[in-house]
Simulated assay, not measured.
Amino acid sequence: MKRAWLIGLIGLVLMLSACSYNDSASTAALSEEEVQESVQNYYNEMSKIEQLGKSSREQFNETIAAYSAGTATSKEMEKAIAQFKDTATDISSQAKKVEISDRLPEKVKKLLDEAQIAFQSAYSLKEKASKGADSADVSADEFNELNQNADLAMLYGISKLNEARVATGLLEPDKDADPKAAADSKVVTGTDSKTVKP
């Protein structure tokens, strides 16, 4: 049910942004090599953003573990929460700024646009979760649900990005898997549990 709701929400946004596809027809098309380069550049940018998010989560979780074990102080925990929030906001902003060329073939551009919307949704949810990490107004269940929904959106985005990579010859299709599944994708989950306010 949760997955269907999230996919439906992303689908609604896609419908509202569909008019943008028609504008690309009037611009000069890219060559095959340029199309591959454009898709690869998008992949590289999103990979760098996700790596930043992964590193931030790892550092945050390490501090949580240390605080729970009594080897980190309340001040260190507060600093870790502040950094986690700042990084989540920065990542969400960066994801919105990654550009997609209007000169891509319509099918490829549509796939990247769908991936972009999903990634932006994922990072917005993660940003919202980070802001509630030490909030008494956000329960542990709500915190975990935000991260789980973000992971579902991320999975959807990765699948669309990999469809674009397959369509442009950058990635071999996985014949044994769901064509919409990420052939080489790895799910990076959010934090496992909500922190207790120090």
Rank of each mutant, 00 (worst) to 15 (best):
S121R: 14
E62Y: 05
K107V: 13
T191S: 15
S93P: 10
K131Q: 12
D23Y: 07
D192S: 14
P179W: 09
R57M: 12
Q59C: 08
V196H: 15
Q120P: 00
D134S: 14
S135F: 12
G8Q: 01
D134Y: 13
Q116K: 09
A18D: 09
I7P: 04
S26I: 11
K194M: 11
A153I: 10
Q40F: 15
A136F: 14
A181D: 07
D90N: 13
A182P: 03
F119M: 04
R165Q: 12
F119Y: 15
I49D: 02
A133N: 04
V187L: 15
Y42T: 02
E33I: 06
F84Y: 13
V108C: 02
M154E: 14
V188G: 12
S68G: 10
A65C: 01
E127F: 02
K110S: 12
S124F: 03
K128R: 04
F84K: 05
Q116C: 01
A118M: 06
S55H: 05
S139V: 03
F119L: 05
E50T: 09
S185Q: 05
A18N: 02
Q116L: 00
G11Y: 07
K180L: 08
V35P: 03
T27A: 09
G169T: 10
K180T: 07
T27D: 13
Y123Q: 08
V35A: 13
K2F: 14
A140G: 13
S185V: 06
A65L: 03
S124C: 02
V166Q: 02
E172L: 10
I100A: 03
I64N: 06
Y156R: 14
A153N: 09
Y123K: 09
M77R: 12
A136S: 15
F84A: 04
S101L: 06
I10E: 05
Q36L: 07
D192A: 14
Q51H: 01
A136P: 07
G157S: 10
F84N: 05
P105E: 00
I117T: 15
A181K: 11
E127M: 04
K109I: 09
A28L: 13
T73V: 04
L104Q: 10
V196I: 13
L104T: 11
T191F: 06
T87G: 05
D23P: 02
I158E: 04
V35K: 01
K85I: 14
N162H: 15
F119A: 05
S124Y: 07
A88K: 01
I10R: 04
A28H: 07
A25E: 11
D23G: 03
L16E: 13
D174F: 06
A88Y: 01
Q36P: 05
K110V: 04
T87V: 05
R3C: 01
S193Y: 12
L146E: 12
Q94R: 14
A181T: 03
Q94E: 14
N22W: 11
F60S: 08
A82R: 02
I158L: 03
K54G: 12
A80E: 01
F60I: 11
D86W: 01
R3L: 06
L16F: 12
E62A: 13
T89Y: 05
G190W: 00
C19L: 09
L146H: 08
